[in-house]
């Protein structure tokens, strides 16, 4: 067995274990922490695949800010655990069975039959995924989508503020809310 494959096997094992742990943890805090480790491990895979920029963004944005946001909300709401009992008996079993069937289908027909088990990934070119290349592409060819994502983020920010402002201002529309603030 090649060293590369041993490394991949190890990383893959960690990814699967953390993912399963995230799903089965009783406490939401644990789930969040499992997800952070999962994201970090996936970032390693990105590095192996020659995408250092994405790997860094994955760690800083996902594992960093987004998961911190999750933790904030969990703690803010105090919703680590749910009190009520499961109402949908059989949902869990059915979900697992369907999930396994789905996985088998994906593996058989998406990966095995398509012949991807024998085609190797070519070794990444040193500069292919370099931050310079990504930056050039983002600011030249994909400049417009880039700007649009910026706008989406802005709208999402405004929306999040409006939604969490509480009951009284939430009944007013955005413009009055803003003008009140300015006034």
């Amino acid at each position: 067995m090649l060293p590369g494959e041993i490394l991949f096997g190890f990383i893959g094992l960690v990814v699967v274990i953390t993912a399963v742990g995230m799903v089965i943890s009783r406490n939401a805090i644990y789930s969040a922490l499992f997800l952070v480790s999962n994201f970090t491990t996936v970032a390693l895979l990105y590095l192996i695949l020659g995408a250092p920029f994405i790997a860094v963004v994955q760690i800083s944005v996902y594992a960093g800010s987004i998961m911190v946001l999750f933790l904030f909300v969990i703690m803010l709401l105090g919703a680590e655990r749910l009190a009520a009992k499961e109402k949908l008996q059989g949902q869990r079993l059915l979900a697992v069975i369907l999930g396994v069937v789905f996985l088998v289908e994906l593996g058989l027909f998406g990966v095995w039959k398509a012949g991807y088990m024998t085609t190797p990934v070519p070794p990444a070119a040193a500069t292919a995924g370099a931050p310079e290349a990504v930056g050039m592409a983002l600011f030249t060819q994909y400049a417009l989508p880039f700007e649009v994502t910026g706008f989406i983020l802005l709208v999402a920010t405004v929306g999040a503020i409006l939604l969490t402002r509480g009951d009284k201002p939430a009944s007013k529309d955005l413009i009055t809310a803003v003008s009140e603030k300015e006034g």
């Binding site: 949908l88 979900a95 369907l98 069937v101 289908e105």
Partner: peptide
């Protein structure tokens, strides 16, 4: 129950 709906959707996808 949203989860039931999702289960049905998954069943359809399968």
């Amino acid at each position: 129950y949203v989860r039931t709906y999702v289960l049905v959707v998954l069943f359809g996808v399968v």
